[in-house]
């Protein structure tokens, strides 16, 4: 059975694409056959984060419109045999994607025996975001410990519970996973940033993972190598834990305690 995961947030710039890329790569590392789809029509970016931007020939909209077959448009990952990327179109036509078209592509991926389809949602709550979440079985709601992001995720959680196929058909609701990213335990300790518990209390849902703020995330996107592949990075390790939890394994949260400063920093500050 194919499981469809939407990575969404409402607010832009919180780490949806970074998360989609790492999540999809992590599932492939676990031996799953995975397709990751960029739903951000007009603002294609997943290809850059996955490092396959120069191999995009056909895109999602081409497949929906029958201008290319799904096989032609799926870009096989250089590093993992079982990982495929479907790029967004750069067209400015906002109506390029239709519900029927998206359903057709997802059905075909199911027939091809994919274990997981990761849908990277655009920001906002308009058509693209709606289509990305509509057919999902799981939702990963990416949130930063910051007021506008938390408020928007609450909005998104509401939409997931009402405006999706599962909700409309009265089936078991979408499984919601809250992923807290850009977390800085030192600032939390100083009372400058909402804590994991604060965010969980406000939204009434527990987190599936906490990704620490890390310079490795920018380095990873610079290089086009998902950060989950960096085993020296806490962010990468935190993504690996998150993938394991989504697959049902129980792991304690890591990297949520403040890092103690060294002697020199304690004396001279910094």
């Amino acid at each position: 059975m194919t499981e469809i995961i939407v990575v969404t947030s409402g607010k832009g710039g919180v780490g949806k694409t970074t998360t989609s890329a790492s999540l999809a790569t992590g599932l492939a590392l676990e031996g799953k056959k995975v397709a990751v789809i960029d739903f951000d029509v007009g603002l294609r970016n997943l290809d850059l984060i996955m490092g396959c931007e120069r191999r995009v020939v056909y895109d999602f909209v081409n497949v929906v419109h029958g201008e290319a077959t799904l096989k032609q448009a799926l870009i096989k990952d250089k590093r993992h045999e079982t990982l495929f990327v479907l790029a967004a179109s750069q067209t400015r036509d906002k109506d390029a994607l239709t519900q029927e078209g998206v359903e057709k592509v997802l059905d075909e991926l199911t027939k091809e025996g994919f274990d997981f389809v990761v849908c990277d949602s655009p920001a906002g709550i308009e058509k693209g975001a709606h289509l990305a979440m509509y057919f999902a079985d799981h939702a990963v709601v990416v949130v930063n410990p910051e007021v506008s992001s938390v408020r928007d995720s609450d909005r998104i959680l509401g939409l997931l519970a009402s405006k999706t196929r599962r909700a409309e058909k009265g089936e078991t609701p979408i499984k919601q996973h809250l992923l807290l990213t850009r977390y800085n335990p030192n600032r939390v300790e100083a009372g400058e940033m909402l804590s994991v518990k604060d965010v969980e209390d406000i939204l009434g849902i527990s987190v599936v993972g906490v990704i620490p703020e890390s310079e490795n995330v920018l380095a990873a996107s610079n290089a086009g190598v998902p950060v989950i592949l960096n085993d020296d990075s806490n962010a990468g390790l935190a993504y690996k834990d998150t993938v394991a939890r989504i697959l049902g394994r129980e792991l304690p949260l890591r990297f949520i305690e403040p890092v103690k400063k060294g002697f020199l920093k304690r004396v001279f500050g910094g």
């Binding site: 910051e146 007021v147 938390v150 408020r151 609450d154 939390v188 100083a190 009372g191 400058e192 940033m193 909402l194 804590s195 604060d198 209390d201 406000i202 939204l203």
Partner: peptide
């Protein structure tokens, strides 16, 4: 220490 203010404001608006 502004996190407390953020939490309270969010609690109400949410």
């Amino acid at each position: 220490a502004s996190a407390g203010v953020a939490k309270e404001r969010l609690r109400i608006i949410v």
